[in-house]
Design a binder for these strands. Sequence first.
DNA 1: CTATTTTTGAACTGATCTATCCAAAATTCC
DNA 2: GGAATTTTGGATAGATCAGTTCAAAAATAG
Lengths: 198, 198
Amino acid sequence: MARPRTFDEEQALDAAMRTFWRKGYEATSTEDLCAATGLGRSSIYNTFKSKRALFQRVLDRYMTTMNAGQLAVLEDPGLSGADRIRALFARVLDGDAENRPTGRSLGCLGVNTTIELAGRDAVAAGMLERDTAHRLDALRAVVEAGRRDGSITSSRDAGDLARFLNATIAGLRVSAQGGADRATLDAIVAIALDALTA
Amino acid sequence: MARPRTFDEEQALDAAMRTFWRKGYEATSTEDLCAATGLGRSSIYNTFKSKRALFQRVLDRYMTTMNAGQLAVLEDPGLSGADRIRALFARVLDGDAENRPTGRSLGCLGVNTTIELAGRDAVAAGMLERDTAHRLDALRAVVEAGRRDGSITSSRDAGDLARFLNATIAGLRVSAQGGADRATLDAIVAIALDALTA
DNA sequence: CTATTTTTGAACTGATCTATCCAAAATTCC
DNA sequence: GGAATTTTGGATAGATCAGTTCAAAAATAG
């Protein structure tokens, strides 16, 4: 029928993701996106419609891939509830450590977007809210499992504990972007876990 | 000798602060700053040199004024260590609640800047790091005081507890910007405080 | 009132922004 | 190979960006 694309769409999304992640939405120009993906303007606009639409694809892809890995950890049947949460934190911090191209953490694209865009982009805000709700569900289930298996003894509401853990992850992300090293982040995690048995 | 300024520099800084706070650094144009301050371009560039320099003045002013209030709370001699930390969280959340012009929290300009700029603006990063170090010092002192007065029984390192509390504040800020209401934030605080007595 | 100095508004500069247009190249189907 | 269709690169458009220029207005000091 016609000429096929010579590039891989998901590969282009990954390149765009890295750029948005590193520079933020506003500071990323369409030329940055061309350079990062290796594509011309036409290809980008043909495929993704606009910078904003491309960003939405990127954000969706980011949340989907991140959640896949994190939810898998949270559902590991071989671990107690508390250990699953420990494993989640470890995964978050490992991922953070791997993602420091310039020595400084890039943080989490979800957190970064919450702060840069959620207040004035209802679509992005909605995507992020759905993602948070999803993660809170998974965290609450693990807290309840930990309560059953005895690894979590706090009498606080499971939903509140889930929100506390979610906030702790965000706090770790901000601390990392502010320059904290791995040992510092590990110490924060250890203290946060204390709250589950208080 | 000559014509004096008709505007108040600090008032202009406050107007600029609100704008940067609400929209972020990149998304704020110099025209936005003119509109917010009521000044012309000449007056702004005459007084503040550049958008970036103005932002640095704004960030410095923000950190100074915020720290003044927060450190005062942390040094209240009438309260136990744990109660001073409770009072700090209350102050943070009260301030957050007062600062929701569109219903959604604006977060903290320091956190927002850490995420939007610290990775690619060494001056901003340095200002933020100094501010964080200052706050961590105050938090550690309060943790040590709480340990002496018996209100904090955790055996964790005081510096680590300070970093945990600082990360918790950041996590609260991100949660607020993500749409959490006051009751949710209060519940997170209560759980974080559990870690101090675990 | 005059000389001096600064502020101020408006026009302007050159760069960069997102996005579109269009013709040439590429590829498939027949 | 030829017709049909899509991709692609480069040029371009129009808006907006941060920042400058300049002359007129304003205000003080003497």
